[in-house]
Amino acid sequence: MATVAEMPRETQTFTTVRTPDAAPRPVKVRGENVNVFYGAKQALFGVTIDIPEKAVTAFIGPSGCGKSTFLRCLNRMNDTIVGARVEGKITLDNRDIYDTDLDVVELRARVGMVFQKPNPFPKSIFENVAYGPRIHGLARSKTDLEEIVVSSLQRASLYNEVKDRLHEPGTGLSGGQQQRLCIARAIAVSPDVILMDEPCSALDPIATAKVEELIDELRTNYTIIIVTHSMQQAARVSQRTAFFHLGVLVEEGPTDHIFTNPIEKRTQDYITGRFG
């Protein structure tokens, strides 16, 4: 049998094997037949997926499989790439986020993002976290703002480590702390969804463990979508997992199901380490 990769693109049908949750949660984000092009090159093929509210969904797959591309569609960060084009429909709370009438800035305030490499602004820790609330006008007063900053830092499990040096530059923190600062910065805007693009790939194992712990705590309040290279990480932090391969969403389902009992052969091969 020819693998999908060997088949001519036109003849492929992009069917995804889906396994629903035992107790289905409400859908927060939905992608319907999403195609993404970079110039003439197609990067995603007809991705359709429902992402449940207040849970961690992991996107896994080999490099170049389109998982980050799809993630960046969810808050329209692809808009910043010249020549990128998105087709299909993506909804957040049933509202099309590519609607021309939608203000992309408002969207990004609701869908926060944490990047692969920690990228704090070269400002103080406080200013890093306070930036979002300021531009979105979330704080009525200075004390309001301080409260938001402190609680965000607390929720990012960073407060105790930095409470004495809130006004020192955020770039002086260690890598893991920087990444948690970026998470604090993201949650300070009180988004509904947090996108994480391989948030631990630049971190050491101890820092990784802390961030994973944090992700686990955050899922009670936020819908989290995480792209990861590490299957162990996906298994540890997520409730649902989606496997991408060559721009196609191959299989998605409850994490334990995907890791113990994958239906698709490609998923199985990837998880058992045949490729990746």
Binding site: N75, M77, T80, V104, V105, E106, L107, R108, A109, R110, G112, M113, V114, F115, K117, N119, P120, F121, P122, Y131, G132, I135, H136, C182, R185, A186, V189, P191
Partner: peptide, 25 residues
């Protein structure tokens, strides 16, 4: 570019990212 991405990812508009971060830097 990571600075710009960070700002955009926060929901700052492009103008805000440039005025608040890129231009001062």
């Amino acid at each position: 570019p990571s600075i710009r991405e960070a700002g955009l990812g926060m929901g700052a508009s492009k103008h805000q990212v440039i005025m608040h971060h890129v231009l001062p830097l």
